[in-house]
């Protein structure tokens, strides 16, 4: 069962630079491992992560098998108005998850 952990400050002052921390639970199977009988374990990774702030894309990442399991990504943004951050993870085998967090800007 996929689950996301998001850390966004609940409130901030207009113009502040805040740090956003995100973690999505996912195996991130590289596609380079073998089982004992020699068969390759098929690749199953998250390939794309996007963050939107009140509908505008503010951060995007392309992920590769070299990203560790349970991708943890942190980045920064300047806050201009109260609203919502929306996060989206897209991956192999139709993987697609979303999460959101609100912020109050004074």
């Amino acid at each position: 069962m996929p689950s996301a952990l998001i850390n966004v400050p609940a409130r901030a002052k207009r113009g502040d630079v805040i740090e956003i921390k995100t973690l999505m639970s996912h195996i991130m199977e590289t596609g380079y491992r073998h089982i004992a009988s020699g068969e390759v374990v098929p690749r199953d990774i998250i390939t794309s992560f996007t963050c939107r702030y009140n509908g505008t894309e503010i951060f995007r990442a392309d992920l590769y098998p070299a990203i560790a399991a349970n991708p943890f990504i942190t980045f920064f943004t300047t806050v201009t108005e109260s609203g919502k951050f929306e996060f989206e993870w897209i991956g192999d085998r139709g993987f697609s998850e979303t999460a959101s967090a609100s912020i109050l800007v004074e």
């Binding site: 630079v17 503010i58 951060f59 980045f75 943004t77 300047t78």
Partner: peptide, 16 residues
Amino acid sequence: GNFYLRPGAGRAQVST
């Protein structure tokens, strides 16, 4: 990984 930023990021820093 590739990470795409906007001027509004305030700080050009990414961790993973």
